[in-house]
Computed example of a mutant assay.
Amino acid sequence: MTQFDDLAEIYEEFSRLPFRRELEFPSVLGEMGDPSRLRILDMGCGSGVYDRALARHGAGRVVGLDESDGMIEHARARESGERLGISYVDGRLPADLAGDFDLVLGVYVLPYATTYQELVGLCRTAAGALRPGGRFITLPIHPEVHRDPAHYERYGFRLNTGGDLVDGSPVDLQLCFGGHDIHVTARYWSAATLEEALREAGFGPVRWRRHRLAPAAAAGPPEFWEPYLSAPHAAILDTRKETEPS
């Protein structure tokens, strides 16, 4: 049982908000580039939003992995209607899939490591799934996240970082849209610690990417997006596997 088992429908609703539809998805999918023929693992796939998008855009193989039974059940049910050929795995990645993927996507996965050892473990899971030279794109909490809980409220959520931010500090994520008031606990990790954990897991240099708006959103009034673009709540990290995880 995880804190996400009963949240699949709410996460599905969250995926339809302008913040995700017009900013997060274009940023992540744009960074990935053309997924055609790529073998992709979505680590911490949640309700399967990215899996379905990648399959629709021609990815060669898409596997969704999540520890939440509720999320996996929801993702399988949503995918079955379209018959997109996505595979879903509940729990650990099977040994026969080790080294099978060209790209691992980990959206909002690293923030749920509660210790440095768990953080390295998640990075090793990603590295273990990748072929040599394969990419890992992941979104942790931004090391320079805005400290005002209401800063992101217009985007459908609030972040309460509490006191001093140090590695492993709990961060309260409050989903506050459509009448919902849901709290999820995440963890803060500094830039140096994130890069060290990735290096320890066998990854090379980390590239910190910028968010981008969908063209239609970019053409509109900037006032809505400026607070987020000036202080994103999530970073976009892009790195490649260099060595086998120890």
Rank of each mutant, 00 (worst) to 15 (best):
L110H: 01
V104P: 05
Y116H: 09
T114S: 15
I86H: 13
G85Q: 11
G85V: 05
S80A: 14
L93D: 06
E118D: 09
A98R: 08
L97R: 02
D96T: 03
G91A: 07
V89H: 11
G91D: 12
I86D: 12
E82K: 10
P94I: 01
G81R: 15
D96S: 09
D102N: 09
A113E: 04
D100Y: 12
L103V: 08
I86V: 14
Y116P: 01
D90F: 13
E82A: 13
V109F: 08
G99V: 03
V104M: 11
A95K: 04
Y88D: 02
L93Q: 06
S87N: 09
G106C: 08
G91P: 07
V104W: 10
E118Y: 03
A95G: 03
F101R: 03
R92M: 11
L103F: 10
E82R: 13
A98Q: 03
Q117N: 10
L97P: 00
D96G: 06
Y116K: 07
Y88L: 04
L97H: 02
L103E: 06
L110W: 01
L97N: 00
L93E: 05
L93R: 08
V109N: 06
G106N: 08
A95S: 04
L110K: 03
S80F: 10
A113L: 03
D90K: 15
T114E: 14
D90T: 11
L97D: 00
D90S: 14
S87V: 01
G91V: 05
A113W: 04
R92N: 11
T115S: 15
G81Q: 15
L93A: 02
P111G: 03
